[in-house]
Design a protein around this nucleic acid. Sequence first.
DNA 1: GACTTTTTTCTCGACAGTCGAGAAAATAAA
DNA 2: TTTATTTTCTCGACTGTCGAGAAAAAAGTC
Lengths: 406, 406
Amino acid sequence: MLTKSSTELVRQQNSALVLASLRRHGPLAHTDISHHTGLASATVSVITAELEKAEVLERREQQASASRGRPRVIFGQRRDAGYLVTVRISSDMVQYSLADYGGTLLDRFEEPRNHADTATRPFTEAFVAALDRLADRSRIDRGQVLVVSISSKGLVDPLTARLVWSPVFGAQQVDFAALLQPPWRAKILISNETLLVAHAMALRMEKAGARDLQAVAALSLGHSIGLGIARFDRSGELSVTAPNFGHMLNSSDGKLCRCGAQGCIEASAGFYGILRTAFEVPPDTIPAKFVPLAEMDKIALRARQGHRMSEYAFRQAGLALGQGLSRVVSLYENMPIAITGPGTRYFDLIQRGLEEGLAQSQQVRLFGAPPISVVPEEATLVLEGHLDRALAEMDHDVIAARAVGE
Amino acid sequence: MLTKSSTELVRQQNSALVLASLRRHGPLAHTDISHHTGLASATVSVITAELEKAEVLERREQQASASRGRPRVIFGQRRDAGYLVTVRISSDMVQYSLADYGGTLLDRFEEPRNHADTATRPFTEAFVAALDRLADRSRIDRGQVLVVSISSKGLVDPLTARLVWSPVFGAQQVDFAALLQPPWRAKILISNETLLVAHAMALRMEKAGARDLQAVAALSLGHSIGLGIARFDRSGELSVTAPNFGHMLNSSDGKLCRCGAQGCIEASAGFYGILRTAFEVPPDTIPAKFVPLAEMDKIALRARQGHRMSEYAFRQAGLALGQGLSRVVSLYENMPIAITGPGTRYFDLIQRGLEEGLAQSQQVRLFGAPPISVVPEEATLVLEGHLDRALAEMDHDVIAARAVGE
DNA sequence: GACTTTTTTCTCGACAGTCGAGAAAATAAA
DNA sequence: TTTATTTTCTCGACTGTCGAGAAAAAAGTC
């Protein structure tokens, strides 16, 4: 159902536009804002004045007044308007970061995890302690942290802010919102990790000036397989999803996946799947909990030296990925695909199978194979995604707060 | 990118809201419009007055003034505010319908097609002649037809209004816009047939009061296999797509599809695929151009009587569909699935395989199988979809016209 | 150092839109 | 004929955007 519009919503939309253009282009002068947003100068004045009064924007003097004329007044986010924490959960460590409203990283540390340990209790305790540590070290009032953005591999329910299924905790759910007691009042965002990568890739490509960009997919290769899809909807807004790609049925080959099903893509293309094939272990063997990169490197080395079974294992992984991606483009549309994650270092071994798998479908035969790029720096992308989503959320809240009179 | 908002856009949005509520609930009084849209009474007055002046709405006296008080003034669409034509192209016939702005069907006829005939020329000539015939028979000025909505199975490019790949014309494209010479000024809409079914199903379910409805999929079974997905996006608007489901890779079983690829779902689950398996024809045999329903009925009869190969053929079809649907819910989300098309009459033979195929994926194991319903009246649904899309387009144009001062 | 030029920001009045309250209209019941 | 009831219509207040031009603030010019 459509909803009614009103003059107040107009202001909200346009305020959001001003904040968004400041996010994209950095601090801007009145004139530039007007130019980027398409709003009349007078309108920009009213909006910036309001955001200034709300202590969200601040004026900065222009450093070198290059040209003559009245000097520009540059508006920028007040860094202390709020803070955000990002938490990146992976199987072997948890990374905590603190950033301000300007998007500047203030603090960061990692805590190793024991991947054998699947209990949630030690984790939740460490989580609360880590947040306290972040706040204390930077001397930030806990109430000033407005968003905590959490990412993990696996399935996520953004509405209830819970992990539905993760490789780390399985089906055990963690209610993050309940962990943050009163001095804390942050909103919890929870996202699939590869969703954040796709989000960041879409931002990068948009910034790089890809004009007719419709959608981008990110594929993360590692112990598990993740996919994120970022699409610009009709209204031009970015909407990202993390389909259950790793556990989508690939083929009824009986390969046991650690999720308990058989024939998942991950059972062929995840590190444990590659290892199993390379060592000719029966496909219904329960998968290894964790495969160190060093172990994978060894298999890759053998494959590059011509060892048949190792070569075959990587090729089969590529095939499963290619077939899976062909299904993605069949069910969505052709879109550029960015491959990230630790598995990118074996891309040479995977590529052939991947292309072969892609080529089998009508979609690819008709429209050609989607452009594939390899972007190894996954961690950077994840952080970019975290920041953009958390800051957008904060902007949104700032604007909504005006309505109830803050 | 977000776009700026303005008071004019507010009026557009709210006018659209009024027209949409009139579409959903039929002719309404001032008070009811206000209630349904949430707009203030005064606002409704201004909007209806404007639409009345634009000759889009008309006042109708209330028939039986049941209660006392000032009698209500009912607003309804002026039927003569514009007309639309729907064209449904299928392999054996083309159906033309004419409807008015109120959504009432005025005329309809069908023209048989020779399915052996894949040339576009005879078709385009018949198309133009049929449109002339519709206009003449109902004595409607050609300029009054504002939308021509065309549907076919296959892949469609809505932007250029062309069929990209259809079972009827293969890769030959038809430029419909070029066919309509000046007295005609209708806008061409072109949609995949099953997309319209999904659209109509979403409308029906919304009307039936499904509150938390996120998405619906429609699966059409016949000589070819079609899928449509209708989703309510964040803004609550319905967005529908027609993924290339029928030609998504199912498995590398070497079954030749009529699209030229191997292993498509259609090659197992389309009528020609079922026939091929039932008759134990080698899977790389070039598929039959057309399988009469009577022929399929015979195979189904044999299957129901226990003939092993026929039973197996249907079961394999179901398996391919189930596996395909499991991939759909893995890549999108769990959603109700409505099955339509001539193939629904064999649903009893397909069901087991379908459920088996679905059950293999983690998504289904975690969230359960999506609810499946059988809705045989495909033609009705297609028309409903046509009407809703065409009328929405007309409403949209009416409102946009105000901006340039009509 | 006073004036001019240039550039930017700020301010004002006009215009478009929504909203709530209450007046006006139109009917049935008393 | 009057009253009660229901609906539509109208008016003034409020919020918002926009264009034009005034005001501000610097550098250049004589």
